[in-house]
Structures are given as C-alpha cells and as structure tokens.
Amino acid sequence: MRISKELIEKYHDGLCSPSEKEAVENWLNSDAVDEAFELPSEISKEQFSDDIWNEIAVILPEEKQEQVSVFSPARRSVWRQAAAVLLVGAAGMTFFFLKNKGVNSSNIIVVKNTSETVNKDLEASEYTISVGPNSNVEINNKNGVIDFCGAVMINPKKDLTLTIQGTCEVNKLSNEKHYLKKGLTYIALNYKSSSNPGEVLILDDGSLMGLPPLMKRQLMHQFNI
C-alpha cells in the first residue's frame, strides 16, 4: 500500500482501517523511509519537507526549534536532500509518537502558533489541545500547569484538574485550578474587552453563551465547536 500524506493524517486521527493501520505501522517501522511514500503530485519533496517541518516545528519543545535555527541559509541548501528524507520520516514518527505515546510527561512542551488563521493541535495522554491563531501555550506535565496567551481549546480524555493561567499579562497569574470533565470541550481565552484587556476565561462549550455573540461565533468557527 502506498503511504500518502492523507493516509498518515488519517492514521494520526485514528481513522485508519486495520489494514491501513498495519501498512502505516509497517512503513514507520521499516528502514526504507520513503520508498512507499507517495508525495502529493503538485509539490516537490523539498517543498513537502519544508511544509512538514513548519507543521511539526510548532509542536516540538522550544529547545528543538532553537536547534533548527542554527541552519544558515547556505548550509540549509546543502542539507535539503538529506532533510527531505529525514523529515518525511520524522513527520511520520512524530504522528506515531503523539498518537500512541502521548507527550513526554517529563518535558515542558511549548507550542507557539504564529499562523494568522490555522490552529495547531497537540495530543497529550490526558487531553488534546488546539492552539488558536496568534496564540501560544506552555504545558508543564510535572505540576499540571498550562500557561497560555490567546485562545486554546482543551478536550480532556478523563476528569482532571489543571492549573490554567493566562500569561498575556504576566502580573495577573492566578494559579487557579480548574476541574475539567471528560467529554466536554473547554475554551481558555485571554479575553480582551474594552473595560478589561486581560480577563482570563475558562469556559466549557455550554457556557460560551456568556460571551458576546461575535466572540462566541468566532470561537465556534475557529475550533469547529
């Protein structure tokens, strides 16, 4: 079976049939990284590797991103061919890692989403997080603290208690614990209103009705609630 980008995404979303799942896992576990991989027809392997790297860079710990930044433009061009092969494999392995093992509990995970329009998703063992445009989040799995600035959606996989702090304004850290119920969708928002530029809101999807309709609709649209 040819392994396509779409198939890997499907695998990541847990939507593969048993045969597709087996094919992806065989591909992931095989040494021949790109033999069975089908590139989208309209883009080159280089472009594809760049795209994938841009995607995975935001879900890697910050230190990893800094390591990447040592590639100077000149050196980067030298590494392009090798990077294409390695990154295609790395992308698949990253999906596999996130899907099956969750976020490494000993790490502080930093996700910075600089996109103007697209969310960045992260799957941890106890919850999934979707980081909205122009938003960032830092997750400390040791103490259960989530610091964020912007808009973030959290879907708990079990009942859990998290300390969720809005960090757009550093002098307003609340250290407030929130009990999140499995099955509900939560929005954490550093809401900027005219009277209060740094209000931190943690709302389940049933409580979005408390927001101004324009804000509620933006969030529903952005996070597909």
């Binding site: 909205g132 445009p133 122009n134 938003s135 912007g150 808009a151 928002l189 550093n190 809401y191 900027k192 209103s193 005219s194 101004p212 324009l214 804000m215 933006q218 952005q222």
Partner: peptide, 10 residues
Amino acid sequence: YHTTSTNGFT
C-alpha cells in the same frame, strides 16, 4: 463594523 482578533474585538 468591528475589528476582531483571536481573543477579542472592538
């Protein structure tokens, strides 16, 4: 008319 951002609007 409004000006909107991810986490607010005017």
